[in-house]
Design a protein around this nucleic acid. Structure first.
Lengths: 107, 107
DNA sequence: AGAGTACTTTCCAACTAGGAAAGTACTCCG
DNA sequence: CGGAGTACTTTCCTAGTTGGAAAGTACTCT
């Protein structure tokens, strides 16, 4: 079980989607990410930078043929932070009356 | 089961705490609320107004003896919105937890 | 009267987020 | 070669949010 730790960086709606999305896969493509969260190029680029600066995501710039392709994935730190944030949310909800949160998700 | 609906109003950290706290009790006192979320009087007053304007909380101004006392509680709408927001979070997390944790070491 | 309680409102400074547009860098095509 | 396009990144700027301080309201207590 993960130690709860509310993380403001992860909590923000777009970054929560982003991080959750990344938590579900390995490397994700810039365009896929952009479309999945519905952001402009610039907005995604900035959020990715923010997350990378925090050490939560790793950014890989590779070439597919001759064209650049940027992908990102969660780092171990990012995954931990995400898990802890989720725990924090669960704790909040549990205190709230616990009616809603099923505890199936931890592995 | 509640229909998921991400609610930006509720999602913001302080309001999430506030709403979750209120979801756990009936009427809560202004001072108790203020101390539980660690806000200044003005900040709490404003958040409470915001939540009341949204129809999520009901504010009661009563007198205890001769002194005014403000309390708040969730309305049915507030509770529904909270439940739905929690469901939305759950959904996000569920998607993220959907796949087994992959490779943790690489460089 | 002056102090204090219990907020509410106003003012303000600090952020944050996101789009537009420009910039970078390199490729592809006629 | 030059123009168009891809794939982002950076800069500029606007808009919206948050919260504390301080002032305001209203009433009570000594």
């Amino acid at each position: 079980m993960t130690t709860p730790r509310f993380d403001e960086l992860i909590h923000a709606p777009t970054r929560l989607s982003l991080v959750a999305f990344l938590a579900a896969t390995t490397w994700a493509d810039f365009t896929v990410l952009r479309d999945s969260v519905g952001l402009s190029d610039s907005a995604l680029s900035k959020q990715l930078t923010t997350l990378a600066d925090a050490g939560y995501v790793e950014i890989r710039k590779a070439f597919v043929g001759k064209r650049p392709r940027t992908s990102a994935r969660l780092t171990a730190d990012g995954r931990t932070a995400f898990d802890r944030h989720v725990s924090a949310l669960q704790e909040i909800v549990a205190r709230a009356g616990g009616s809603v949160i099923p505890t199936e998700s931890q592995a």
